[in-house]
Amino acid sequence: MTNAENPPSSTTRKWTLTPEAFDNLLAVFHPNRDSAAQKYLEVRANLVRFFEWRGCPFPEDHADETFNRVARKIADGEEIQKPAGYVMGVARLLVLEIIKSLTRQREALGEYQHSYSEVADVPESESRIDCLQTCLQQLSPDNREFIIQYYQGDKGEKIENRRKLGQRLGVAINTLRMRAQRLRERLQGCVEECVNVG
């Protein structure tokens, strides 16, 4: 990781998020603190997705930086009527800064343009496969069979498999897809936990 990949917010980070500033930030979302916290988490999850979709290297950090900037605006006396939209607006400005920084970095690297697939920050694939086998065994037999059938085959064969699977189970392709998606997320969570422990 190079310095250029860090969130380009060195000047704004001089301002520190105090407990009082965070309370004021929460209060913008809802007068009730519990409801405000719930809304805050919901908006933060969307921010993380947003930065990930936009190809930013540190979605979690960028989301926190976004909230820091919003909290600072509130501390400076800004009145916010629609917090979710306002936060997203700040995030869009931040993403432009990030992209500009990344572009400068890539131009500097020239022919050594960064390719993330070569970044070896993902744990050993063998242990990941072992963990996946273990996690599959933890699924119910029908879920295990389902996930294997859903993902097996090459492109054309896979599409046909899924169509037949949907017919056999009497569900639409979209429903089938959502079921596979949820099972896959469960499996991935299990695998990450397993890899980190191992």
Partner: peptide, 10 residues
């Protein structure tokens, strides 16, 4: 270059 930018995606 774009999709795999974040560690979570990787």
């Amino acid at each position: 270059t774009h999709f795999l930018a974040s560690a979570e995606r990787r």
